[in-house]
Every structure is written in C-alpha cells, then in structure tokens.
Design a binder for these strands. Sequence first.
DNA 1: GCCATTAAATCAAACGCTTGTTTAAATCTT
DNA 2: AAGATTTAAACAAGCGTTTGATTTAATGGC
Lengths: 230, 230
Amino acid sequence: MTAIVPFNPAAARPRSSDARERLLQAAAPLFASRGFNGVSVRELAESAGVNVAAISYHFGGKAGLYTASLEVLMEKMRPVGGPVIAMVDQAFKAGAPDGPACAALMASIVRHILTTLLDGSLPPWVTQTVLREFQEPTEDYRPMFDERVLPLQRAIRKVVAAALELAPESPRAVLASQAVIGQIMVFAATRHLVLEELQWTNFSGERLEIVIETAQALVLRSICLTLSEQ
Amino acid sequence: MTAIVPFNPAAARPRSSDARERLLQAAAPLFASRGFNGVSVRELAESAGVNVAAISYHFGGKAGLYTASLEVLMEKMRPVGGPVIAMVDQAFKAGAPDGPACAALMASIVRHILTTLLDGSLPPWVTQTVLREFQEPTEDYRPMFDERVLPLQRAIRKVVAAALELAPESPRAVLASQAVIGQIMVFAATRHLVLEELQWTNFSGERLEIVIETAQALVLRSICLTLSEQ
DNA sequence: GCCATTAAATCAAACGCTTGTTTAAATCTT
DNA sequence: AAGATTTAAACAAGCGTTTGATTTAATGGC
C-alpha cells in the first residue's frame, strides 16, 4: 500500500543499479528528438532494455526521468560555456582589455564555442534539447538556464560592451551581444540546414576551420574589431 | 459503413461550416505552445467550442487539423519574406548593386524583417511554430519551408555575397549569410529573453527602433558595409 | 408559398487502443 | 535471511476516432 520510495537521485546508490543508468542513457536522445510528450514510457523502457516499472521505481515517474536526463545533459554542456567564462574573467581581471586584446579574446570565444558545438564530440541531441528548452522552457529548465546559459551570455556581453565602449547594462550592449550570440549559435541551431546547403556531411577538420574563420571575421567586424596579426 | 468523406479543403464549401473555421483559429496557438502531441483533440474542440467529432469530420483527423493550421500559419508569414525577396529581385534586376546600394538594401531588409516579426502585428505563436518546425520538422513542413524560408535565405545570400564580393554558391557566402540571418532572427527566437533582460514588456515604438538600429549597425559592419547617408 | 426531400453539419455516446502508474510475486545480491 | 531490484500483469484514465441519431439549411415539385 505504501509506495516504495527509493527515488533519491543524490543519495548513495547501494547497488550497481543497472536499469537506472541504462534509462538515463537511453532517455536523452529520445526526449531530444521528439520531446517529452512524443515518447512513451514503454518506448523508453524498451530502448533501454529494462522493464517499464523501472522508470517509476528509479525516478518516480516519467517526469522524474526527464528531469534527471536534463541534468546529465546540462552537465555535458559545461565544456562549452565554462572555459569561455574563465577566459573572460581572466582577461578582465585587470580592468577592461584594449581593442586588440578584445579582438583576440572574442576570436578565441568564437573558435571555442563553434568547436565544442560542431566538431562531433558533443552528441547532437544535446544542443537539440538545449535549443528546444530555450524557446519552450519546462519548469525544470529554468535553474539550469540561470546556472549555465546566463553566465555565458553575460561573459560575451562584457566583451561586446568593451569593444563597442558601451556600458554592459545598456540596452544597446544587451542587443548587440544578443546579435553576436545569434551569429555564433545559428550554426548549431541550423546545423543540418547548413550541411545540406553545402552538401557536407559533417563539420570535421578543414570544414570546421572555414566555419570558424568566417564566423570570426563577421563577429569581429560587427563589433568594430579586427585581428591585428598579419 | 462507408465513411462520410467531405474533407476536401480546397473544394467550395456549400454551407457556412462554422466549426471548421473555429477549429482552424483555435488550433494554431494551442499547437504552437505545446506541440502536436501536447494538445488533445478534446482540448482543441473545447477551445474552439465545437464537438470533438468535428475534427475528424472536417479535417480527417487531428493530423489533418495540424496540417491545415500549419498552412494558414505559413500564409501569415508571407508578409515577412515576400517583400524582402521582391526588393532583392528589384535591386539585382540590372546586375549586382554597388556598395552603397547594397548597404541601403540590407538596412531595409533588416528593418522590414524585425518590424514584421517584433511589432506585435504577427501573433507570437506564428514565429513560435516556425522556429519549432525549424529544428524539429514534421513532414508537412518541408514543402512550406522550400516555398517560404528558402527563397528568403537565397535572397539574403545574394546581398551578402555581393557585399563581400563572393560567389553566391561559395561556402564562405553560404556561411556568412547564415551568420547574418542568425544576427537578425535571434531577436525573434529569444524574444522573451531579450525582453526580460531589458525589463521591457514589448518591442513597440521607440524600443523597436533601438533594436532595428543596433541590428542594422552590426549586420552592415559584419559584411563590410556602412550607410553612406550622414 | 408551402411542404416533403435531401444532403450537410452537429451531437452525445461509445469504440478500441495507448498512456503512465501500480501491484504483488519472483529474482538477485549481500 | 533480508532488503533491493526486476518482472509480468493489471490498473484507471485519457487518447484519437467512429457511430448513429438528430438538427440545420437549401432544393424542387405542386
């Protein structure tokens, strides 16, 4: 009569708990491609090779599994924004950097974000889910957004504001940095369209380099900067 | 036993067919905010104030209603891309325009797109649905994409390629135009985030003007152009 | 002008099926 | 032996769709 209540995700798990891990791994790509309502618990269970009841048992229900899979997904996003934030903090440690330093910094940011997003090391369903939550947030998403996405936005805005000599909180700085973010993220958001248009199959190697160089050139020009080297 | 088969959308509708119109109007916002699987037929019917059976009767099923509502939605998108394509065609009638002409043309394009997307005349669920289909296309969407979105992309690419003196089919032109499209569309895609960040409630009047001017400045600089006037 | 005729549209109710969840027995692990 | 885990089966509720009767609106013969 009383429900078995083991679903404490943080608690030390006494056994190997095979099913839990298998579900967590199988769920994310399915949710990513068809959304929460587009996937049934039976499909999730079958894809993970476990019994349907395992979902309620380990996660308290379908919604709990979604939340948990969203958390592991956001963890995978850490290498995208983390280094960028660190780089910006470092550069601004001794006051706002000058023009050439800003240019070099922004070039590194563009390269790092596009590399981590496009080079294939990050599973495609990660960006897929983040973009979905971006425009149609579930309530679970908000804290992750505040923790992961917003600091990245703020970091980029600092650089843009410095380059354009604007106050970081001014409307123009907010809008300009949003435009810059759009310039970069569009390649992740429309990944398959770009690949189709160029008749490419992926962004590896030389092709990624072309994307990065083109994006760098446009981003830097848009905020009145150029790379001084050569 | 044989099904009544009146669901011919194009055929002249003999009667007023109240329910059909009411469903079509109620469905789009619901589908937009929660997706095809997120809305039930009973909810659709109740929201439209009609009987559940009306959906199967008039559209052949829930999927048919979705397709139909996607069509009226794409029709609402016509004023966004249509004039842009016309403007570009006009400007390129006598060969590629020179620098200043390109700058003026691109400035007009940015102004037109941002105005139609943000000034509130277009219901918010229109862009919402388009962006959703963009990254998670249903099969109904593809022909509409080819008809509406692709020509707009091509038109913008022509201008970008002309400004950067690249062949319109070259990878760099494709990528650069995609970055420009990202600069513009990011304001529609992250509409609520930008509003929240600026503590605005909408993009009307003076505020829209700031957005347009900022976007124009960044887009033009990114493709090596400036407005000659003043 | 009026009333039977006919087809379209609407309706409440039920259809078969899938959904997410729960149960209680069986199986593992220590 | 005892608790954690897995299992097949069943659960109620909701799903999209269909049914057959009823209402509505235009038509044609008189």
